[in-house]
């Protein structure tokens, strides 16, 4: 009994001694999860990014009304950028043609009647419904973009560093659902998690400009986003020129509407360097210089 108590005391002593050494090391260890107050980060660690990707994909699947490639399907030809608002128009006649392809066998052909097998976006009515159901309720589809929001919220909770989540959610909140306040709050949340991110700043600037019509604040935020773009993207070998084009276009439009033509021409000149539609931008520059109407507006959003 005595030997038993002695060995127990010895083990307790060893454990205590080890803890005095290990505890300070663990607190300063970079991999320690105790450094954050976020329960999800503590529980899931870096695997939360995987869940964030999954939830983002889920939002994309909801955007396509369940028509979405699985891990077994080829994503070739499938418009994954549609959820970001940069959508390509799709051909209704070929709507069954992208990742599913032609049926391999009769089971494949038969089973396509039991899951979404036509390419359609949320908020849009399916051409098939128009043809086969004259009583189809078109109004019911309006505002259905809201259905993607829970998954984007979850994705942001899982990985606050995923910029796309904030910009996509705020885009739909603001443009389709008229929730400007919520869109701004969500972008601000993203900005707190990713200080000075140029893409979030651009989203915020656009909301101030087109949503709240707060021109001076919009100008400041958009100009800040351009500065941040130069800091973050300028050094990269393949910078995101589409984003720069969008910032410059928004700034040029803002200055043009405020009759601040020299600044607008300045932005259009910079935009011309990165935009594929140089001709139409030059026409805008000429118009602002000569007051002659341009043939068409610049294609960069």
């Amino acid at each position: 009994m005595r030997a038993y108590l002695l060995s127990l005391s010895l083990l307790t002593l060893v454990a205590f001694s080890l803890s005095t050494t290990l505890e300070p090391w663990f607190q300063s260890w970079a991999g320690s999860r105790t450094q954050t107050d976020n329960v999800i980060q503590v529980a899931l660690g870096d695997s939360r990014r995987m869940f964030a990707r999954h939830f983002y994909a889920k939002a994309d699947a909801y955007f396509h009304k369940g028509y979405y490639p699985s891990v077994y399907d080829s994503k070739e030809g499938f418009d994954e950028k549609a959820i970001t608002g940069n959508e390509k128009p799709h051909d209704d006649e070929k709507c069954e043609g992208d990742f599913l392809g032609k049926p391999h066998d009769w089971i494949d052909a038969f089973s396509r009647n039991f899951f979404p097998s036509r390419h359609v976006h949320v908020g849009e009515c399916d051409a098939h419904d128009h043809k086969h159901d004259p009583d189809h309720d078109h109004a019911a589809e309006a505002g259905m973009e809201r259905e993607i929001l829970p998954w984007l919220r979850l994705s942001a909770e899982m990985d606050p560093q995923r910029i796309e989540t904030y910009t996509v959610a705020s885009f739909w909140l603001w443009t389709k659902l008229g929730k400007i306040d919520e869109a701004e709050q969500f972008l601000r949340e993203g900005l707190r998690a990713n200080p000075g991110d140029c893409e979030i700043l651009f989203g915020l600037g656009s909301i101030y400009y087109e949503g709240w019509k707060d021109i001076s604040r919009a100008r400041n935020v958009l100009e800040l986003s351009m500065v941040r773009w130069r800091e973050q993207e300028g050094r990269k070998t393949e910078p995101n020129t589409l984003l720069l084009g969008q910032i410059l276009n928004q700034l040029a439009k803002l200055e043009r509407e405020q009759n601040n033509y020299p600044r607008a021409i300045e932005h259009y000149t910079l935009l011309k360097q990165v935009s594929p539609s140089k001709q139409s931008i030059q026409e805008w520059i000429d118009y602002l210089k000569t007051n002659q109407p341009p043939s068409k507006v610049p294609l960069v959003r």
């Binding site: 009304k65 369940g66 039991f114 899951f115 979404p116 399916d126 098939h128 419904d129 189809h136 019911a140």
Partner: peptide, 8 residues
């Protein structure tokens, strides 16, 4: 999926 996304 047909039920969730209100397909015909």
């Amino acid at each position: 999926d047909l039920i969730v996304h209100n397909w015909s």
